[in-house]
Design a protein around this nucleic acid. Structure first.
Lengths: 120, 120
DNA sequence: CCTTGCCCTGACGCCGATGTCAGGGCTTAC
DNA sequence: GTAAGCCCTGACATCGGCGTCAGGGCAAGG
């Protein structure tokens, strides 16, 4: 499978796949003409990468997940190296949720104040 | 008051104040030598700006709040123009909170799976 | 006079994932 | 042979708030 086909199947672009490769997430073989050649298993890997990115992980955080998948595990998150990253990200998300919740409270208070303001 | 003093009092930097000015949030007078001259009321404005930034508003969103303060109101958020922005931001925050909550749930599920995995 | 310390403007750097353009090669079909 | 459609590498652009450096002016004190 060439890069364009994998990109289509994964719902992304060749540019993006080359970016993942540059960051060590995927390592395709090369045809004689230099074209990247991917086997079907890579589709799974790319999906894993994109899911994790969508969940706010950085490309560097994702490496252990990919390694875990490549090691033959049923999912990228079942290895202890992945768990470390998962816990770190969970802490970040909790932190963010806390701050955002505070922000929301302030916003609602301010909006409430506007509505009350017209009945002095 | 010169820019350095205002920056110190507001807990920020001259660079930052010039940035706000470039984006139309503050308009200091100029001394004969070209130095920016601020009166004490600007400290209040800068605080308002920084609070809103910390709550995730963009510089352009902040203009109505500043205008509202300048118009003599007790707070920047009591004007209808501010309310429009407040509601928009509240919607964004709610959206974000929803997505982050989903992410957190997935993270916790995956961590749970790791712990269970060692007792097959 | 010279240093110190403030001020000025303008411009580039950052971060992260991706788009996009430039310039060039291979393959396949007409 | 040539046009179409894929592939390659490399490099610049994006967004936003700010750091930081470059190059230069003004004021006050030794």
């Amino acid at each position: 499978m060439l890069i364009g086909e994998l990109a289509d199947r994964a719902g992304t672009s060749p540019r993006t796949l080359r970016y993942y490769e540059k960051h060590g997430l995927i390592r395709p073989r090369r045809d004689a003409n230099g074209y990247r050649q991917y086997d079907d298993a890579e589709l799974r890997v790319v999906h894993e990468i994109r899911t994790l990115l969508a969940d706010g992980f950085g490309v560097d955080d994702i490496k252990p997940f990919v390694a875990c998948l490549r090691a033959g595990n049923s999912a990228g998150h079942v290895c202890p190296e992945s768990a470390v990253v998962l816990r770190r990200r969970l802490a970040e998300v909790d932190e963010l949720l806390g701050r955002l919740t505070d922000v929301r409270e302030r916003l609602r208070d301010q909006l409430k104040e506007i509505r009350c303001q017209m009945t002095p």
